[in-house]
Design a protein around this nucleic acid. Structure first.
Lengths: 336, 336
DNA sequence: CTGTTAGCGCGTTCAT
DNA sequence: ATGAACGCGCTAACAG
């Protein structure tokens, strides 16, 4: 491996001078600068980031934790985060937890060991609290994405889940639906709770009863087995005329189950959901959805994180950004 | 920051003993081991990866370069790579190049500076050659994924693109189609070349003429503007009765263009393509496709990379794995 | 403008 | 079974 000492020797200067040329610090004569640079090229020198980080006490490494790398909401978010990070010269490590707390714990260890400068964090759920406390304790700045965690204060970027759910339900009610089911994520996740809350509020507002039977709590992540959803569909009696799905994954899997029963959308059943469905939205955009600004989640969150990192220590108030929910009306709701 | 010296002081031993406890090396009495461990817990000690890497000369960091993080083929591949890496205690960094050589170059610099132990590399194209040479020159092992690069030997995991294209064309010919268009990726990418080659061979085999007009080379990545594809659709005269799309992204964008012209698949035009379309395939699986084993690309490639890393230096023959192409016949081809 | 000294946190080598 | 000295590659602080 080529080190600054190799360069220094060959260029006839000290290692310090080489370091200064690399980092553009201090005053160096043009002559030595040119010479050092030439030797660097000749030897194919590449700075050792590890050594720099060790002495500078910062890695310029950031972490993005997402819960489902196959979900277009998160990959789009990732692009936003990556763009913002790159613009500021930071590198971004991705971690994929699969909504799994054990995997999340492993990544927390990695983050701590790696001495990442900060973390953009979509937590698996409320039980992520100890993980966040661990980051806090070790002085690693973080910004929460998409989900809050009760018990800890921090910067956070959220979608307006409650309002989103209200609008989706209203859309169905306006279509004449009165028996509306909700296929939601787990209530250990703040966004799922908010969506449930918005759903209940909207029902109340329209003098519709809340029927527990019509709500299923499942995982926001993809499942190998649809039997849980199937059983629920069988169980509901009388069956609903319309569904709200808590995210895009649940919408897709619900549609598969409905399809398997020969139920078409919207002819036989109406369906609305949170988040766009990737390519599907482009080929045949027919689902009425709350389209969240996925890219903004990542981009804005990254900016907030970088702000925290730059103002190292200077405690300022936590910022909570709620991104508005845009309703896109298409044709997955049948007028009754 | 808590260091091994803090622990050593508090436990009344030397730093070296602490190091031995951490790494489970040498002989240590159970009593001191227990004591050191207790102090480590009390102080919340976390090893500094940077310092370890510096002395051990290895980072346990691997890189995965993909060209489109929003493409389910690559995210599924990423899951495969991640699973395999994690199983062996390696961390995985993702890089997203957007099929862009400049971004790729930036990532190469990052990889070199970071002293990554190895790279899993889906290159942007043939022009990635200098980037690979740079890795080789600096002794960074890599495995190519999905695409070969002429001019450099290495381990590589490929799909059987030529055979895939042959099968897709055959499927259309069997459906009575004789005027078959190909919307392909750039010929600077080996997989696109293979697909073109397979397409031509299949035409020849069926005594169909090759008409340059029927082939468009575009980017495999998503584009903001469909005018290139639109112009092509307008230009072909007489128009084809069927299309082969070189990947899932091209298929989606082609369908959008067709849709905009009021052409339905398969009623008005037939369409087949490489790769599944994520959620779309699950909701309404109607496209006839060559389904590639995306997860295997990543998983297998990672294993090959880890093999190389473990057999540090010992030169063995390059391995080239070609994953078979499975044709899934659905209903996007109309019988003429 | 340039060089010397010291130390970032840890593991290897050689003593004890 | 445990410790002291040294070095991994680099930069901050100071000296000249």
């Amino acid at each position: 491996m080529v080190t600054i000492y190799d360069i220094a020797a060959k260029a006839g200067v000290s290692a310090m001078t080489v370091s200064r040329v690399i980092n553009n610090t201090g005053r160096i004569s043009d002559k030595t600068r040119t010479k050092v640079k030439r030797v660097m090229d000749e030897l194919g020198y590449v700075p050792n980031q590890m050594a720099r980080s060790l002495v500078l006490q910062q890695t310029h490494l950031l972490f993005l934790m997402i819960t489902d790398i196959t979900n277009p909401f998160y990959t789009t978010l990732a692009r936003g985060a990556e763009d913002a990070a790159q613009k500021h010269g930071y590198r971004l490590l991705f971690g994929n937890t699969d909504e799994n707390l054990d995997k999340e714990k492993d990544y927390i260890d990695t983050i701590l060991k790696t001495r990442a400068d900060g973390v953009l964090f979509a937590p698996a759920g409320d039980a992520s609290l100890p993980h966040l406390e661990m980051l806090r304790k070790h002085g690693v700045p973080f910004v929460l994405l998409d989900r809050e965690v009760p018990g800890i204060d921090s910067d956070v970027v959220l979608g307006d889940s409650k309002e989103g759910a209200r609008r989706l339900v209203k859309q169905l009610v306006d279509g004449g639906h009165r028996r509306i089911a909700l296929l939601n994520g787990s209530r250990t996740i703040s966004s799922a709770r908010e969506r449930l809350e918005g759903y209940r509020e909207a029902l109340k507002l329209n003098d519709l009863p809340f029927d527990e039977q019509l709500v299923l709590e499942a995982s926001f992540g993809p499942r190998s087995d649809l039997s849980e959803i199937d059983a629920w569909l069988t169980r509901m009696d009388p069956p609903p005329t319309a569904f709200v799905a808590g995210n895009n994954v649940l919408a897709v899997e619900l549609m598969r189950s409905l399809r398997a029963r020969g139920l078409r959308v919207p002819e036989d059943t109406s369906l609305v959901c949170f988040d766009e469905l990737a390519s599907y939205a482009e080929i045949d955009p027919f689902l009425t959805v709350i389209a969240q600004q996925a890219y903004q989640f990542g981009h804005l969150g990254m900016q907030m994180l970088l702000d925290r990192i730059q103002s190292r220590g200077e405690a300022s108030a936590w910022r909570k950004v709620v991104l508005p929910a845009e309703l896109i009306v298409r044709r997955s709701v049948r007028q009754l």
